[in-house]
Simulated scan of single mutants.
Amino acid sequence: MQQIEEGTLILSQDNQQAELQAIVGAVRTLAANCQGNNIALLAVLRQLEELHREIRDGIFQASLPDNRQALYALLRDIESQGGWPYIERMRLQALFANWEAATQSNHIADETKTDVTKTLESHNGEVTIWD
């Protein structure tokens, strides 16, 4: 059900939730399609951050309450629904730590594979299993 308020079309709560879930689904699908492509995923994150900023600084600020009761209702909603929306940025230190950990685990896996290959070669391809 749609309502008309001050010449603006407003979606009902149910329609708004359905539309929002469709957008969330589309973003998740896009991110899944970009899996493994860190440049594309970074572009998605940047676009989401820009959209957050655009809505916050534009439409949201313009719709802030102009009386105490409405401000109280907004603050109560923010508190009861999980706080202020925030998009956290990954710190470069965390990025490097994750990269270093992944590199080390790949290096250990490569060393293990090399050791197994050397062992197989030294035994002329014969494998002995010790229990």
Rank of each mutant, 00 (worst) to 15 (best):
N124L: 03
A62S: 15
V24L: 12
A22Y: 02
A70F: 03
Q93A: 10
W84H: 06
W130M: 11
E54H: 09
L30M: 05
A22H: 08
V27D: 00
L120P: 02
N67W: 11
L48T: 02
E100T: 14
E5C: 05
G25A: 03
E111P: 07
I78D: 09
G25M: 02
L45R: 00
I55Q: 02
M90N: 03
L20C: 04
A18I: 09
Q17G: 09
L45M: 07
Q47T: 12
L42A: 10
D131P: 06
C34W: 01
A73K: 09
T112R: 12
E50S: 10
E6Q: 15
L64G: 10
I87G: 12
L75Q: 12
N124V: 13
T103F: 12
Q13C: 10
E88F: 04
W99T: 10
R91C: 11
R68S: 15
L95K: 06
D110V: 12
E49P: 12
L51F: 13
E6R: 14
D115C: 06
A97D: 11
W84N: 05
E126R: 10
I4K: 05
F96T: 12
G7W: 01
A94P: 10
T119R: 07
L75V: 03
V127P: 09
T112P: 01
D131Q: 14
